[in-house]
Design a protein around this nucleic acid. Structure first.
Lengths: 207, 207, 207, 207
DNA sequence: GCCTAATCGAGACGGTACGTCGAGTCTTGTC
DNA sequence: GACAAGACTCGACGTACCGTCTCGATTAGGC
């Protein structure tokens, strides 16, 4: 069983392990240092040596928790992106979309998130097994949650019945990620708002 | 001046240099090898040693053309993404959107494109100067071209006047990149079509 | 006080300690495993981890008995080299020499002895204090015993009066160790016999 | 072909290699540093890191020349033990023995020699292939040279005809090594002289 | 039948070295 | 000049062992 607040680092354990227990300070200390490194110099700067040196924790201890830089990055993402909350529908579908977008946006505003996720995606190309281990559970959870929201909206008649849920997910997530991480244009609340408007209203002029 | 087919590798030169001329075979040979490496094992596998070994070209010669792995990757992207063509408007805005999307999509279908672009974006976080040198010109060219398309459509009345051009660019580019490169779901023409539908029609039910 | 059969591992204790008594199986079990490791892969393979794993005894328990690999190796040597027996003189000095040589030879025939002693000597250069703790008592005991033998032989007139006892000790011990451990030539009883012959008769032709 | 002064580090080459030539300063600089390390703290202190740090030469460069610490140690031994000179016989066999002993003795007086050779012998137990690569040529050369000396002496009648040449080699080499490296007794010219006396005259009293 | 104390298995922890590999740079001789 | 070849520094990789430590559980007296 995995306990809250220990991320991918945690191993399964039955209430009480044998042997010396792990130092509980290490987990948050390393993640904090990792965020700082990612934010300032990107995934390449996320080095076991640098983490060890800046925290006073030995490299071996970090390896014991995270077998790969990718796992560290994934735990940082897990911390910032706790899955979409299922918000009740009272305010209508457009409000719901805006809420979801806001959630994604606020997650990726953290300066460590960009380097972490891009670094991870880059690593997936080199080691494809990482994707299924590290990424897929996160994405699938988010998609599942989102599907419920959209299907409810379809049932209640506020969402078009012909929209493809996963395509909409791709649009919302992709647009924001692209704007924040990849584009050379700035990104603030107003730009996010413009994206929402287009998605909600479509692009064609009223005929 | 930059000559067609030589990408970022080219140096400026005045008609005829002194000394032994560069071997014209090197440029395409290296790029082809780079694509193969990127496609099979990602950006990390794009190594000067591996390129040299697989092509018989010495490392020094490759460095003379591309000072950085990033420059090689950028040249591969330049090859697959030659900027958006300004297609005439006769078929209406929705057709135009689909054409643009198709162009982006076909560019990113190349199995070397994902590793190349994600690797590049990853490198930008470590060396920010790369972004302005390598990425910004490409993106700005694409945006500029796209702005002309959309503004024409606004003038002709087929596009909503209130849409933010750059936000629409973010949506189209971001959605496709996300679906192809980052998502664990498959991506074929049908999925791309669904994205287009949403963008074109919006998500709200007709009231 | 040190009790027979417990080697350097033993700590001083007053008849009966409080607390859980030490498991008497550990001592022989570890030494046997250590011999096996030394014999097959040398001193470097003599690892606390390897010992623990192959015996089921925990590392902590081994450390409690032997603070250092050197102490384990020393206990193995102590087991094979119980000091020279003072053999009575009746058979003459040459027979005595042969008896001493045979004793040294049979000690070093054990395939664990070479790795143990060479490993130990190697360790002495890094930690000089080990030599006085671990080695010197053993050597001094052997030399003392040997001196008695030689001096008796001198008194009885079978040994030359001008021979340096310690030099003779060096010759006998050194020759055998060198031949067995360091030389690339094979070593059996006949080769040892040749060494004895030279030492006993000298090398100069009868004039 | 192997060139004088480059030891085991040298690779075969045909007069002039392609590519950047190796820095000739590295070879002596590393060996000097290695001697210092060996002399002060033994074979365990002979670390690639320590060598790199104390000389300013990078670890990779050292690895390029010596694949193993053992090869470094062997090159140090090669430097101090250039093989026995074939000294002419005029002064008789006993003088010859003394000359050979003096040569061995002076070789092992270097404070780096003990750690180097004991460390090497220790390594042989872990990696047996090292012995044939690194050690055997050295020993065989020395034995061959020594055999010539002794056989000449036998022919000229100054040496006993029944002595085993290799046993005598073992005695001379072993005694000195043992006294210098392993014994806790001191070793100076006088002690070496005593060893010679015993070997030359034998141990039995004139009857 | 508790109390105290040492042992034992298990494993965490800070160090340190290993041997390998890639990035860029530099230095030869040859073309 | 370009080019092949390869030396060179730097720094990270992931592994392994060292010796110390901290846990829970066990096993003996002593009271």
């Amino acid at each position: 069983m995995r306990w809250k607040g220990q991320g991918l680092a945690e191993k399964t354990f039955s209430r009480r392990e044998r042997g010396r227990p792990r130092n509980p300070d290490v987990f948050p200390k390393i993640l904090a240092a990792a965020k700082k490194l990612l934010a300032s110099d990107g995934y390449e700067a996320l080095t076991y040596d640098a983490l060890a040196q800046s925290t006073g924790v030995s490299r071996g201890t970090i390896y014991r928790r995270w077998p790969t830089k990718a796992h560290i990055a994934a735990d940082i993402i897990r911390g910032n992106e706790e899955g979409f909350t299922y918000t009740p529908l009272e305010e209508g579908f457009s409000a719901q979309i805006r809420a979801v977008v806001e959630q994604i946006y606020s997650g990726y505003k953290d300066p460590a998130m960009g380097p972490a996720s891009v670094g991870l995606f880059n690593a997936y190309f080199t080691d494809a097994s990482l994707r299924s281990t590290v990424h897929d559970p996160l994405e699938e959870g988010a998609r599942e949650n989102f599907r419920k929201i959209v299907n409810d909206a379809k049932r209640s008649g506020t969402a078009r019945k012909d929209i493809d849920v996963d395509a909409l997910f791709d649009i919302l997530t992709g647009s924001i990620i692209y704007r924040i991480l990849f584009s050379n244009l700035s990104c603030d609340d107003r730009h996010i708002e413009e994206i929402c408007n287009i998605v909600i209203n479509g692009v064609l002029a009223d005929s």
